[in-house]
Amino acid sequence: MTCPACQDPDTGEALVPYYGVGPHVCFYKIPGATIGQSRPLPRDQWPANYREDPESPGHGLWWCEVCGEGATDAQELIP
Rank of each mutant, 00 (worst) to 15 (best):
M1D: 12
M1T: 07
M1L: 08
M1Y: 08
A5Y: 00
A5D: 08
A5R: 01
C6V: 06
C6L: 09
C6M: 05
Q7T: 02
Q7R: 14
D8T: 07
D8F: 11
P9S: 10
D10Y: 06
D10M: 10
D10A: 15
D10Q: 14
D10R: 14
T11C: 05
T11W: 05
T11Q: 03
G12R: 05
G12N: 06
E13V: 00
A14S: 14
A14K: 00
V16L: 09
V16Q: 07
V16C: 07
V16D: 01
P17S: 04
P17F: 06
P17H: 04
G20L: 08
G20I: 10
V21E: 08
V21A: 03
G22M: 05
G22R: 07
P23L: 06
P23H: 11
H24G: 04
V25D: 02
C26L: 02
C26H: 14
C26Q: 12
F27T: 01
Y28L: 05
K29S: 03
K29L: 06
I30S: 03
P31A: 09
G32I: 04
A33H: 07
A33W: 09
A33K: 07
T34P: 00
I35A: 13
I35H: 10
G36I: 04
G36N: 03
Q37R: 11
Q37P: 05
Q37A: 09
R39V: 14
R39C: 03
P40T: 07
L41E: 11
L41R: 11
L41M: 13
L41H: 01
L41G: 04
P42M: 07
P42A: 15
P42W: 07
R43F: 01
D44K: 09
Q45D: 12
Q45K: 15
W46I: 08
P47N: 02
P47K: 02
A48C: 06
A48G: 15
N49C: 12
N49W: 12
N49T: 06
Y50P: 11
D53Y: 03
D53V: 04
E55K: 12
S56E: 03
S56I: 00
S56V: 00
S56G: 00
P57V: 13
P57L: 06
P57D: 13
P57N: 08
G58C: 10
G60W: 11
G60R: 12
G60C: 10
G60M: 11
L61G: 06
W62Q: 09
W63H: 13
W63D: 12
W63A: 13
C64Q: 08
E65T: 01
E65G: 15
E65I: 00
E65A: 15
E65D: 14
E65H: 14
E65W: 12
V66R: 15
V66F: 12
V66G: 01
C67E: 07
C67T: 04
C67F: 04
E69C: 03
E69S: 04
G70W: 06
A71N: 02
A71L: 05
A71E: 15
A71Y: 00
D73K: 02
A74G: 14
Q75A: 14
E76V: 12
E76W: 02
L77I: 11
L77G: 01
I78Q: 09
I78P: 01
I78N: 02
